[in-house]
Design a protein around this nucleic acid. Structure first.
Lengths: 385, 385
DNA sequence: CGGGGTTTGTTCGATTATCGACAGAAGTCA
DNA sequence: TGACTTCTGTCGATAATCGAACAAACCCCG
């Protein structure tokens, strides 16, 4: 909205963001004449982007006709690809979930296999939601590795054999495809759905590894090479003996990731292999597991304390497999962050468990798709077409 | 430029950014008709924002008339307030320096005294540059403490007694006043003047304390409370004995700041009090001082290694008093960062000494002022007035 | 129940902004 | 020198926007 805050795209942005629900609102917010707004809205309605609902309540005069996104015609998909799973959520333009599915799927099977599976599931979900394939406008996708966002190509992903430089968007016809790192879309999912008026947010995923998605000024920060948020290999104090798969030692995820906690439990004679095992042990009341999770929280907290000073977020959301036992993890994190960060930065800082849970990634990927489609540039293109 | 990339403000942005130097360029870049562009340019010329210079070189036909910012009519000031100094640079609209000055001045004397000094110096510099006071459009100011940028009020600054919550902008009439933390304006000064096509940059100031300015997507990142970049109190490994003025121990600036290095030299029997003393010793070839500076670089490098993984910058600029002996400081920093950060993040990372040196802050503050004045919104306001 | 006041939606001529074609200006090139 | 190219300014045609006027829908109140 640099200069002419009244193009059809800007009008739609005001509606979709909830700033305006009536033509009067739009006229007031944009400064345009009512007649102009009416024409803009008509165009948006004609293109199937906006619909009128029943009249709103009067404020003393004729009640305004409410406007909102037309949610019947279009569909958007959020795809969450993990190492061993695939979750897809089909959404309407307002972000409401129409249908979703979840499958075990090995990302290591390679792009053709995995994307064929996704494509099939998309068809099934669309049928389930009663919308034709052509209604699918955009697909957002989170993948477990670094991605060059502009092109949608994975960038030397360590756990995605066969995917390096694979042009994912080209696999799908007729829909825009946005591909990003899974932690980024999780961050977006939390921010957009649960922390809408938080503009600076960190999402920390504690699973087998540890990663972080960064929302700055309401937008994802991807960094110069798209590798921002890779906090799993930040060094932590006094653990030089812990070797990491990256070749260094004392990496955060080598001492506080799910796999690392499991290994330590095993060393104590308690069988555990994965983060899920650790969660199960904690839930069963195993005190050693509980202690180690809390200790992992402290280590993560040390790193986060640095990042709080540096980045000054309002909210840190903790997600990932280990966050299922978040009371203990959070206790350790909070303890350290509030001790080690500066008061000015921590005064208004909340550290909270994930609210979207297992759905964060698919929802965030879907938001990526919807926001791409509803961007003023794209809307203007649609309206002028 | 969301929708109508052709308002006078957008046109001026294209000119000031150097993307367009002729009417033809503007027509091509904005997609507007040449006649429309001509009218826009006329308006900008009439308002004294743009001027025509001698014809450019022909590309086979009539040579285009070159356009550029009109630099005669306006003036902008960049003010760098430190604990014990005040530097002011008067600039024209293109960022060219018209005049500058430097004085010893104690920030602790309080806002009235200090700002009166600044005001007087502004008058003198304007006279020197041959411009009336009314030509001064905007003032950018960097101060040594946290600031609420939106209001220009210092926020509990530790070394600015009497300044807390003081409304600095209200002191100056007739000019917009933008106040920010000194490290932020230094970062901006480096990025705009020396690293124009670097969109993600960190500026690290190593002086008595240690701070960091963050440029993300070409804009300053200030964080939720405006305290982003406060890396001086990040904990470093194995120095729990080093107490910091903040109350914690093992803070980066308590072990690697100029004061800390000086103290260690004193402990070794070599008299040193400030960062300047350390610099002098290094320049005199004192090997202990040299060793300690390099060691300080390693400690700073440890922190920066984390931040590189997290933020993924393209360039890290090292400035501040200690950077005068930057060979040794940088050697330590580079050594650690390239060892501890991930290859994807370090592959295209440069760690370089400050290019703007002592002028970075005043220049950056001036850029803050100029960019505020040349923002599309403000230019449209001027043109439509 | 039926005016007066208020807010919203619609229509339509007036105004304004933008476009596109044209002509002139100022250079290059053969 | 004349053909060609590129840039600039002019001007009528076209399109977008505005604003006033009116109709519609609701509230309030007598």
């Amino acid at each position: 909205m640099t200069s002419a805050p009244g193009s059809p795209g800007d009008v739609l942005t005001l509606i979709s963001a909830g700033f305006a629900t009536t033509r009067s609102d739009l006229a007031r917010l944009t400064g345009l004449a009512r007649s102009t707004i009416a024409q803009r809205v008509d165009a948006l309605i004609e293109r199937g982007l906006v619909e009128e609902t029943e009249s709103g309540e009067s404020t003393g005069g004729r009640p305004p006709r409410q406007l909102r996104l037309h949610t019947e015609q279009h569909a958007f998909a959020g795809v969450d690809l993990g190492a061993t799973h695939c979750r897809i959520t089909l959404m309407d333009m307002s972000g409401e979930v129409l249908a979703s599915c979840e499958d075990q799927l090995l990302i290591g099977d390679g792009p053709e296999t995995v994307l064929a599976h996704v494509d099939g599931r998309l068809d099934r979900l669309l049928t389930e939601a009663g919308r034709p394939r052509a209604a699918l406008r955009a697909i957002g996708m989170g993948v477990p590795g670094p991605v060059e966002y502009a092109t949608g190509r994975p960038n030397n992903p360590p756990i995605m054999p066969g995917w390096n430089d694979y042009p994912i968007p080209e696999y799908f016809d007729g829909a825009a495809v946005l591909v990003d790192n899974d932690v980024n879309v999780m961050a977006l999912g939390e921010q957009r759905n649960a922390f809408a008026d938080t503009h600076h947010l960190l999402f920390v995923k504690v699973g087998t590894g540890i990663g972080c998605g960064i929302v700055a000024e309401g937008r994802l920060h991807r960094g110069a090479q798209g590798s921002a948020g890779d906090i799993g290999h930040i060094r932590v104090n006094g653990h030089d003996d812990a070797g990491c798969r990256c070749g260094n030692s004392a990496c955060l995820e080598a001492v506080a990731g799910g796999a690392a906690v499991a290994r330590r439990l095993t060393e104590l004679g308690i069988a555990a292999e994965t983060g899920a095992d650790v969660v199960a042990l904690v839930q069963a009341g195993n005190t050693q597991a509980l202690r180690l999770v809390r200790e992992a929280g402290r280590l993560i907290g040390e790193v986060l304390a640095s990042l709080v000073n540096f980045f000054n977020p309002e909210v840190i959301v903790i997600g990932g497999a280990l966050s299922r036992v978040h009371e203990h993890l959070l206790a350790g994190i909070r303890e350290t962050v509030y001790r080690r960060s500066l008061p000015l930065a921590t005064h208004h800082l909340s550290i909270v468990p994930s609210r979207m849970g297992i759905n964060a990634a698919a929802l965030g990927a879907g938001m990526l798709a919807i926001e791409h489609y509803l961007s003023p540039e794209n809307v203007n293109r649609i309206v002028n077409a």
